[in-house]
């Protein structure tokens, strides 16, 4: 077992973990943060996307021990003070989710995009979104929702 210290959504956790434990499984099973979803487990579908030290990453492609000392944000940290994050509110307004499996990963990647570039164009949003698989929505409502928050719709 390896000692691990990470800050997740503002709270510091110290845990002893197996070196082989994936970061996605650490978040879900050790910390109980099941908002991060696990789809393909080989970095294609994007469902497990989180923010790690301010970058959108796939938590299924990292070991938990690689995140030692890092700051992580998951979908559970998006809403503040009982209020939906503007992206979450826009997703609801545009019906940008149906089953919701891909949603948490897309929300984290979109939050990251908006933080890095406050006014992404529709093409830039589609480019970011092309790293995520959604089987329900046909993507267009997701692009609409992100573009609305970006003010570029």
């Amino acid at each position: 077992m390896t000692a691990l210290e990470v800050t997740v959504n503002g709270r510091t956790h110290r845990e002893d973990v197996e070196p082989r434990l994936l970061l996605s499984d650490f978040l879900r099973h050790t910390l109980g943060l099941t908002g991060t979803h696990v789809g393909c487990e080989h970095g294609v579908c994007g469902a497990c996307t989180i923010r790690l030290d301010g970058a959108a990453v796939r938590s299924c492609l990292l070991l938990a021990v690689q995140a030692d000392g890092c700051t992580i944000e998951t979908v559970e940290g998006l809403a503040a003070n009982g209020e939906l994050h503007p992206l979450q509110a826009a997703f609801r307004e545009h019906h940008a989710l149906q089953c919701g499996f891909c949603t948490s990963g897309i929300l984290m990647a979109a939050a990251n995009l908006l933080e890095q570039d406050g006014t992404p164009t529709r093409d830039e949003i589609v480019d970011m979104l092309s790293g995520h698989l959604c089987r329900c929505t046909g993507y267009e409502p997701i692009v609409d929702a992100i573009a609305q928050v970006a003010g570029t719709s």
């Binding site: 080989h42 294609v44 480019d127 979104l129 092309s130 698989l133 046909g138 993507y139 267009e140 997701i142």
Partner: peptide, 17 residues
């Protein structure tokens, strides 16, 4: 058997409707 070999349409692949 994986998404590396089985292509699902992404946001860039689905035309507008």
């Amino acid at each position: 058997g994986t998404f590396m070999d089985y292509l699902c349409p992404t946001a860039a692949d689905v035309p507008s409707l």
